Amino acid sequence: MTAPPTQRKAWIAGLEGPRGFGALCVVLGHVAVVFAPWIVADARIDYLGQALTFFFVLSGFLLYLPYVTRADNGRGKPVASTYFASRVRRVFPAYLVIFCIVNFGLGAAYTVNPVMTGWERADDGTGTITEPARLLTHLTLTQSLFPETLQTGINPAWSLTTEWGFYLVLPVAGWLLFALRGTRPIVAAILPPGILLVVGWAGNAAVSLLQSSSGLPVQQQNWGPNWYAILARSFFAFADTFAWGMIAAVLYAAILRGAFPGVSTARLQLAFGTLCMSAVAVSMVLFLHAPRWTASVFAVASLGFILTIVSPLGRGEQSRLAVITDWLPFRYIGTISLSVYLWHYPVIIVTARLDVPIPATVFGLLWGTALILGVSVLLGTITYYTIERPAMRWRA
């Protein structure tokens, strides 16, 4: 899960709503896994988990864009200390508060990896983490770096660890961009994401090779308490998804400079939209036959989708698609999406613990998603206005 940008000036119309829709997809997928696993098996709606890929691509786009535009305008690169401080303020206050409430208040943190107990038995293996070393990994968002703590605590928070991998790499990518911008501006902008593409492809190839020889069930290979799953969840296996977002930033910056002058905005959007839909189709095939590479291709679809929305804005024109994608309900969920993302699985656990009736039917899935999303949005709203927004506005 990627956190929305810290400063309002980084906001670009049309992108907050898709973040909210992606959060809805994640909630729906997790509700199905727990309360209607047969729907996951038959309809394969676990494909909705690719919303996380979109989050990673969007993060690459939004965070690399200031580096590219500053380089284009001859300005200095962002200050690393300021950048890191903003990332810490954006993620940790909300995460720490929610984790402490879930762990110490509700006793709804996973103390063992849920793969070992079964995700459909949501309340099994939950409780309060008290062992100091394990607790420290959760307080520092490093739990996904060790087999014994992977998927424990707030289990979807593994993606925040992956995000932090990108956060740490981005200033190095920015340094490379600015070091090369004087003589080779195009190479300077493309080389950092190009390197990350290679890293991601190599990481996925290594994961595929190691998992194929592991002898473990597929779920344990990807999510279990072992080093295969650690590598599969790591930044190295997802580096290419962030890279495609960075490439989207380079293309958007080029549009801002007046690139593609002979191509109408409508045709430009058609090209990006066609790329998006084609990549979605390919990713669906891969999801069924070569799932390790699904995110790599879905990331290309995410690039196409983002640029379909924002390319008119880069030309100073109105984007009708941006008006649609920023539909108020989705835009609001997108604004509070970090808190919603962190709250929704503990809400699922407590719902199962209380034996709230959610039938294992299509209707039950819709009812359960509406209930859990509603509670998560309520809690997310409280967290956003009391913790997230004040932390974002705080300056030392």
Rank of each mutant, 00 (worst) to 15 (best):
L275Y: 08
C276D: 06
M277K: 04
S278Q: 07
S278V: 15
S278W: 13
A279D: 00
V280W: 11
V280F: 09
A281D: 08
A281G: 14
A281P: 06
A281K: 05
A281R: 01
V282F: 08
V282K: 08
S283H: 13
M284P: 04
M284R: 13
V285R: 09
V285S: 07
L286F: 11
L286W: 11
L286P: 07
L286K: 09
L286R: 07
F287D: 10
F287S: 11
F287G: 05
H289M: 11
A290F: 06
A290R: 14
A290I: 06
P291Y: 03
P291L: 04
P291I: 02
R292S: 11
R292W: 09
W293R: 00
W293C: 07
W293G: 03
T294Y: 02
A295T: 03
A295Y: 06
A295Q: 07
A295D: 01
S296D: 01
S296Q: 00
S296A: 06
S296M: 02
F298C: 01
F298V: 04
F298D: 01
F298K: 00
F298N: 00
A299N: 10
A299L: 10
V300R: 04
V300F: 03
V300A: 05
A301E: 12
S302A: 15
L303S: 05
G304I: 03
G304Q: 10
G304Y: 05
I306D: 06
I306W: 01
I306F: 01
I306T: 08
L307R: 02
L307W: 10
L307G: 05
T308V: 10
I309F: 11
I309N: 09
I309L: 12
I309R: 08
V310M: 08
V310D: 00
V310Y: 13
S311T: 14
S311K: 02
P312C: 07
P312E: 03
P312H: 07
G316S: 04
G316D: 02
G316P: 01
E317I: 09
E317P: 09
S319A: 13
S319F: 11
S319V: 08
S319P: 13
R320L: 09
R320G: 15
L321G: 03
A322M: 05
A322K: 14
V323L: 14
V323H: 05
